[in-house]
Design a protein around this nucleic acid. Structure first.
Lengths: 115, 115
DNA sequence: TAACGCTATATCGTATTGACAAGTACCTGG
DNA sequence: CCAGGTACTTGTCAATACGATATAGCGTTA
């Protein structure tokens, strides 16, 4: 029954992580929000909805980590593409490093015991 | 200058993660709060203070993941040891799995591009 | 043409809730 | 008495994730 506490924990763990996921998603090539949602939905545990991704993109934009441009589409309204800025790229690099560092830190706590 | 946004991100990322760190710290053998603080302070990025650790221990206790017992000390007030319960051990296992899964997920996003 | 479904963007409000600084209080030894 | 070990509470400060909802363009079909 008390998967409630586990579910809550996973939600907490997503905080910040989704931002990293989004940034990594557009690191290759610019993407528009709707497509980001689709891409991340293919990745286990990173499933995200519009209500979550747009606020994130807004924040990233306000922080100057990404910039946007519009592009016509044959299949609906114009798409707003998000592209990493120079700063975005630098920050992403630091963030990825920090992330790896955290992974290593947790790993070291577990490694100290046998099983 | 805008390391503010980076700092904020790292704070967000700590949400939930500290709980995992604490659980892994006492997985070997029971520890008391003050000692947990010291142990984690040795680990990069996991530095934690009393104001953070005690609320976490409280929550874990209320959720039934840990149980406590007192033990006299020669060097101050009695120490309250925190020990994983059976459920705590099970949950920790799930949590560690989930954590690894997230790490893999982010890794897969990065792997898809070259550099 | 009206209806429908899918592509797309965006915002509101709520549910959480968690991290952390600062301060209180207690114990023991020097 | 002070320093250091130890537990714990209160208050502040945010901030995020996400469901629900509102628009709107375009293509297909009844």
């Amino acid at each position: 029954m008390n998967d409630l506490s586990f579910d809550n924990w996973t939600t907490q763990l997503r905080k910040g992580l989704l931002e990293l996921a989004v940034l990594n998603t557009i690191a290759d090539a610019p993407l528009y929000g709707y497509e980001i949602v689709r891409r991340l939905s293919d990745v286990d545990h990173l499933v995200i909805t519009e209500g979550t991704v747009y606020p994130i993109l807004s924040r990233l934009n306000n922080s100057g980590l990404v910039e946007t441009y519009l592009q016509e589409s044959q299949e609906g309204p114009p798409r707003k593409y998000y592209r990493l800025t120079r700063r975005g790229r630098d920050d992403l690099h630091r963030m990825n490093q920090h992330w790896e560092s955290l992974h290593h830190a947790i790993g070291s706590l577990r490694k100290e015991r046998k099983r």
